[in-house]
Design a protein around this nucleic acid. Structure first.
Lengths: 356, 356
DNA sequence: ATGAAAGCGCTAACAT
DNA sequence: ATGTTAGCGCTTTCAT
């Protein structure tokens, strides 16, 4: 019985559409420019306390939300960041995204993701994001060598930031001290009395692969342990690669190692599979430690001892740094993050036959 | 010495800024509306072959890329989709995102992600995405009950699609036949001669939890195996929950089960950890099978037998369906996906003491 | 302190 | 088949 549209009703959306700044201005009895001054967030604009209140009130009563598209057009910024990842189902990248999303959100930006399909060139993903003017900046991650990505990023003509990598000529990156992380891992093994320590190494990526390998060698050298090339095999960054490399080491080494340091969580998972095939017990017969304390480290059996890697933090800092870049607060940021520590779980033990 | 700005130079970006439609029109000697007709993709616009070519050529020579923000403002669409996920480092969600991103991209949309922080209400994430007019539609995933999410989505006032869930009053969803998947898993065990089959069940989510539990009971009933409540414990969807539930079953059951069907990959990982603590061998003493063939299924020891779940496909179909909704080609889509099959790996074997 | 007016780059009537 | 015009919602000089 109550007529739906009677007289002055303060029903939030006046029409079916969303309220615009103009609607707010009308209702507050001011000009839209004044409303803008109040509502644009830039609250250092001088507006009378009284009018300001009226505008705020009107906005609330109309459930006003700025149309970010219009604002973007006007100020020539999209307020969004793009992140391109090669594999989404890799804890390193998902954690990075979590961090980046948080950073972006805190600064009022959105995060747009692009998945770089296996096989398609990286260029495609960056072009997609940047050339259509969808993003103000790019967060760049890659498994491959930097060169490809770099040229793609240049082409994009927006500021960009390299995540988990750096390199010559890179003016913006946030990366990890892989060398220090490797040392931490290997020194842990050495501290447990191990001397025959294998390494399953990376190859594709200079930054991670070389850094961790160097840390491994340095730690051995510092402890006066001779480097034995038979104890090293290239695993890359996959489970399968880890398993293959582990088998290779077991077969090529005249004297079996008592510990292994696989370059990543994935390689470690593969290594443990291989060990179990051989009937080698972890950690009784052989200790395993790796870098990156991702969620599956806890889920494996035995739970893996790992060096903590601030992956989410890298994503967060990357986003913040990129925004600083975009907004002109900085022109260059190269930050190396340190490993946060060692989490000792069940995969490492004293060298067999060493007493307590 | 060469003057920077001499006469007609075809250097791609005329100024430091990007070329606009106007630049293209100028260079082609046509009006911007004509250029728009050619370049807006809507190529069923009638434009003379000759002018069309000139415009295309000009666009290429200027390296023109449409400003999507301006287009968005004009047509009142953002050409982007939002997806809100509760956990990014869960293979279910990462695979869904991969699929959704692919679907969106194929249709010229971008995918914007929002991470629902633990503790913060889901509302916040949806509001963030939708109320600032950043997205044309929402892909909704949740671990919790639907009700919360639903109200949040309504508030968002954009079309939305539920992923991996459905419910009464939901007009758009794409979900999984959990019942059938559970049957497949349990029938596999029954086929191997098992009769004492435990189940680690969900609880939080009606759709997944109830469906899989029902499939478990149905499969038992069909095989004439009596349901034994002692063999069931609630695990939820985490590793820790899986381990606890497994322990509970082992302790409460008068006669130990010979097989277990944990509700998810995470629960299965936890269960296996618990079994290893008890010195129970998989699969010699006890078989394990679960649903969702995520990447860690292969990485575990023993590699897990699982029912394949089309997670990525759900993401893809969800995105496509949502876009159909947005563009008015459909008004309702409720699709139930079927399990794709059973992958038998090393975690299931014939019941102990049954001969070949 | 506030209003008037212009314009970001694009698309879509409405001419012609 | 192509040009003219208006305007999406907002911010930002420039006046007052």
């Amino acid at each position: 019985m109550p007529k739906k549209t009677s007289d002055a009703r303060p029903s939030p959306p006046p029409h079916n559409l969303r309220a615009t700044l103009n609607d707010v201005a009308l209702q507050a009895g001011v000009d839209v420019s004044t409303a803008s001054r109040v509502l644009s967030g830039d609250n250092k604009q001088r507006v009378g306390q009284d009018t300001r209140n009226r505008i705020l009130e009107a906005a609330k009563s109309l459930d006003y939300h700025p149309n970010i598209t219009a604002r973007s057009l006007r100020v020539a910024k999209t307020f969004s960041l793009g992140i391109a990842v090669p594999q989404l189902d890799n804890p390193v990248f998902s954690q990075m995204i979590i961090g980046a999303e948080r950073g972006a959100r805190e600064r009022g930006y959105s995060l747009l993701i692009a998945h770089i399909e296996e096989g398609s060139s990286d260029d495609a993903a960056y072009e997609r994001l940047a050339s259509t003017n969808r993003v103000d900046g790019l967060l760049i991650t890659t498994l491959d060598d930097n060169s490809v990505v770099l040229s793609a990023a240049q082409k994009a003509r927006v500021p960009f930031m390299l995540l988990n990598r750096t390199g010559p000529g890179i003016s913006n990156s946030i990366y990890f001290d892989s060398n220090a992380a490797a040392r931490l891992a290997v020194e842990h093994l050495i501290g447990l009395g191990h001397t025959r320590i294998a390494h399953l190494s990376g190859q594709l990526n200079p930054s991670t692969g070389i850094g961790r390998f160097a840390g491994y060698r340095d730690a051995l050298a510092d402890a006066g342990i001779a480097f034995d090339p038979e104890l090293v095999a290239v695993s890359g960054y996959t489970i399968k690669g880890g398993a293959q490399a582990m088998r290779k080491v077991l077969e090529q080494a005249k004297q079996r190692p008592t510990a292994v340091f696989p370059i990543t969580l994935a390689a470690a998972a593969g290594a443990i599979m291989a060990l179990q095939q051989y009937g080698i017990r972890v950690p009784e017969d052989l200790s395993v430690v790796t870098v990156h304390d991702g969620p599956i480290a806890e889920a494996m059996f035995p739970p893996l001892s790992t060096v903590q890697m601030p992956v989410e933090q890298m994503g967060y800092d990357g986003a913040i740094g990129l925004i600083d870049l975009i907004e002109g607060r900085k022109t260059t940021t190269n930050v190396m993050m340190q490993p946060q520590g060692l989490i000792i779980r069940g995969s490492t033990a004293r060298v067999p036959g060493a007493g307590t």
